[in-house]
């Protein structure tokens, strides 16, 4: 795991290097089972298209959780996410091939607050589209 990030060593404007998270259909099938969200738009191409979607799309919560995990990987122990909000601005379309697609997440420390808390602004992109917007995580550091 990443080394512990200390509040005193963090600066506003500090960038957190981008990380790539590949997504293939199998990840969505695994996530469906693990999350209990079996909506067919996340695994059934035929169904997804009949409800007006271009193809199978990733669960919004999958994308949100990957970006949240980007923060916890950065913060390390004992960092903890306190508040976390996103807007799902584009869909993560996952084609039925061996490559799937990739969600790229990056972040910047936007604010330092009291009680050793910081606000991290996150950017998540997939296929040149911003898939999360207004993504902010309030993180408790040590």
């Amino acid at each position: 795991m990443a080394a512990t990030v200390k509040y005193d060593e963090v600066e506003v404007g500090q960038e957190i290097p981008a990380a790539d998270y590949p997504v293939r259909r199998i990840n969505l099938v695994m996530y469906a089972g693990a999350s209990g969200d079996f909506n067919q738009i996340h695994w059934n191409e035929r169904f997804a298209k009949t409800v007006g979607l271009p193809d199978v799309i990733a669960h919004g919560m999958f994308t949100m959780a990957q970006a949240g995990r980007f923060v916890t990987d950065w913060a390390g122990d004992p960092g903890a996410v306190v508040d976390y909000g996103v807007r799902f601005s584009s869909m993560v379309v996952v084609p039925d091939d061996d490559e799937g697609t990739v969600i790229t997440v990056s972040g910047v420390v936007e604010e330092k607050l009291e009680d050793k808390r910081v606000v991290v602004a996150l950017t998540a992109k997939c296929a040149d589209s911003r898939v999360l917007s207004k993504a902010r995580a309030l993180v408790q550091l040590s």
């Binding site: 979607l53 919560m61 976390y84 996103v86 807007r87």
Partner: peptide, 15 residues
């Protein structure tokens, strides 16, 4: 009949 999630905000009071 179509559905997409547009917003999600979560607050974790504790783990």
């Amino acid at each position: 009949t179509g559905v997409v999630a547009t917003n999600c905000e979560q607050t974790y009071h504790r783990y």
